[in-house]
Amino acid sequence: MPDKFWPKNLRQRLHRLSGEPCLICLESAVTACGVCRHCLDILPWQPPGCIRCAVIVPDSTSAAPLCNRCAEESPAFDSCHAVFSYESPIDSQIRQFKDLQGFRAARSLGELLAISFKSHYRINSLQPPDLLVPVPLHTDRLRRRGFNQAKLLADAVHKFTRIPVLMEGCTRMQTNLAQRKLNAQGRLANIGHLFTINSNTKLTMGRRIAIIDDVITTTATARDIADIFRQAGCEHIEVWALARRN
């Protein structure tokens, strides 16, 4: 994302990481978000895609394209935004963040998400969400991992926007396998079986929310959690993720 889209005060905050090597190439001096200027330019930024789920729509000439799936079955969320395509080197940085507790990667990726998030509403003169809702982990997985990556990303957005973070807006149910270990068919079969309403869900009634996740693959998780909030009377639902598998 070009520097001209970043307000001066945000650019100043980004430069506080100077002195560390670039997160990506490990050589150049850091200029923003822990990533050098060259690597920022060549990162796999997600291009405009389906207006509902953000997947790339090949050969589309429409200003507001819809993928075949969203045209046939509209999701409960209103729109989806991804900062990057899930490609090298972003895919390995996300794995570093999630599986190896790479908190430097978490910090840099979180700031890149936060900048993209804030810039989207400012540049397009859109009303931002009232609440940030990180996708919850099941308690067993949270205990094993020690942290919820979506919560860390939501915290990063909160620091830039001051939008409150609603924790445990719904409850994740236990499943035999994590979503990322399933193929596309298995993920989609889980829709309706991933989340359930809890006492915090009603706090989204009449509100505008942004669901925060690390990676969007088939949108099964996003669709399931959005269904929960739509049933609870949520007015407007957006999904924001670091990366999108296309």
Rank of each mutant, 00 (worst) to 15 (best):
A114P: 10
A114K: 10
A114Q: 10
I115W: 12
S116A: 09
S116V: 07
S116G: 09
H120F: 12
Y121M: 05
Y121N: 00
R122T: 15
I123C: 02
Q127V: 06
Q127E: 09
Q127P: 01
Q127W: 06
P128G: 05
L132M: 06
V133G: 02
P134L: 07
P134Q: 00
P136A: 12
P136F: 07
L137D: 02
L137Q: 09
H138T: 02
H138K: 03
R141V: 13
R141F: 05
L142H: 15
R143T: 12
R144Q: 15
G146V: 08
G146C: 10
K151I: 14
K151F: 14
K151C: 15
L152N: 10
L152T: 02
L153F: 09
A154C: 10
D155T: 13
D155A: 11
F160E: 13
F160Q: 13
T161H: 08
L166Y: 05
E168Y: 10
E168G: 02
G169M: 10
G169F: 02
C170T: 01
T171N: 08
R172N: 01
R172M: 04
M173D: 01
T175Y: 00
N176F: 14
Q179A: 12
Q179Y: 07
Q179R: 13
R180M: 15
R180S: 15
R180L: 06
R180F: 14
L182V: 11
A184G: 15
A184K: 15
R187W: 05
R187G: 02
L188I: 12
L188M: 14
N190M: 13
N190D: 01
I191Q: 08
G192R: 01
G192V: 02
G192C: 13
L194R: 00
L194M: 04
L194F: 04
I197Q: 06
T201N: 03
L203V: 06
T204D: 03
T204E: 04
T204I: 10
G206V: 04
I209A: 03
A210M: 03
I211V: 12
I211F: 00
I212R: 02
I216V: 09
T218Y: 04
T218M: 04
T219V: 02
T219E: 06
A220I: 03
A220T: 05
T221H: 00
A222P: 06
R223H: 13
A226W: 01
R230G: 06
A232F: 14
G233N: 14
G233E: 05
C234N: 03
E235M: 03
E235Y: 11
H236F: 15
H236K: 11
H236Y: 11
E238A: 10
V239H: 08
A241I: 00
L242E: 03
